[in-house]
Simulated scan of single mutants.
Amino acid sequence: MSTSAANTSSVTVIGLGPMGRAMAGAYLDAGYQVTVWNRTASRADDLVARGAVRAATVGEALAANEVVVLSLTDYAAMYSILEPAVPALEGRVLVNLSSDTPGKAREGAAWAAKHGARHLTGGVQTPPSGIGSTEFNTYYSGPRELFEEYEDVLKVITGTDYRGEDPGLAALYYQLQMDLFWTALTAWLHTLALANANGISASEIQPYAAETLGGMGQFIDFYTPRIEAGQHSGDVERISMAVASLDHVVHTTRDSGVDPALPAALLEAFRRAAAEGYEEDSLTRLIAMFGRGTAAK
């Protein structure tokens, strides 16, 4: 770590939604001098009461510190907020923790470089309650030397997981986890709707749902080496079994007066794989099918 980075004890946080406020608070707790800016200035009131400096303008916020943490809705918000203050970007280190696509992250890094700023993409793997704890990680990507120079500053927010030089990688890893998270969470909510329709409460099904979801790690561990070896034999489970099982789920859902769209969509994917000749193969065959994007055609 360079001397300048080692002596960094101040930071600017732009964007004071729940995540941005948590980040600014973590820096205050760590003894940093913190400058904050938000479109709705009143969101900074509690932070100012704790010692943060409220910048009057974005340009003032950028000029205050070398390291600028962005916690915004997306990259479009970044452009909207920062473009009026482009001259103040020279020499800044933008730690962009806004969610967006890998392509948008690459474009954002190039835009920052054009205006004399250095850019690190970040993907935070915790809700606001986990900010300030090293039990959680944030994915980072961008120039390795930049990440290493400011890693101690980044660790105030969460632990760090550097993914590579490509600015899009942190965004990609983040979206991969969001794909898994939202799909699994929605499946649980559908399960609760089905349980409730049959007089079973959320608390009654909770231990069983937690056990099922908790056991998914074992399936991931088991299947990963087989997938990488191109092994999709149906010696453990078969697509034909999955079709029959999910068909029962769909019928149970309909019989209970619950919207069957979610399991029906999965059943359609299973049936499509069976129709392609993979009926006796493992469900892992779906990876190639999904990869072709057939559902979108």
Rank of each mutant, 00 (worst) to 15 (best):
E90Y: 01
Y174F: 14
A229F: 08
N196L: 06
P225D: 04
G217E: 07
T35I: 10
R292Y: 01
V13W: 03
M23Q: 13
R285T: 11
G293E: 03
V53P: 00
A193I: 02
S10C: 15
L176N: 15
R43C: 02
M289Q: 15
G51L: 05
Y173Q: 08
A184L: 14
M216F: 10
V34H: 03
G15C: 00
A242I: 13
A113I: 03
G103Q: 11
E204P: 05
E66A: 12
G108Y: 00
S10R: 15
G108W: 00
V69H: 09
N198H: 12
Y162G: 11
A41V: 10
G168E: 07
A269W: 02
L176M: 08
M78K: 13
L262G: 00
T101S: 11
H248M: 14
R54G: 02
R118L: 13
F181Y: 15
A30K: 10
R39Y: 03
A170M: 06
A110L: 14
L16H: 11
R285A: 01
L176F: 15
Y79E: 11
A64S: 11
A261V: 06
S245H: 10
D46R: 10
A64Q: 05
K104P: 01
A184R: 01
D247K: 06
R21L: 05
S2C: 00
G15S: 02
A261S: 15
T160E: 09
E107Q: 13
L194I: 13
E107L: 12
G17C: 00
S141V: 02
Y27L: 06
A26G: 09
R50Q: 12
T3P: 09
S201A: 14
T57M: 12
R254T: 03
L89M: 15
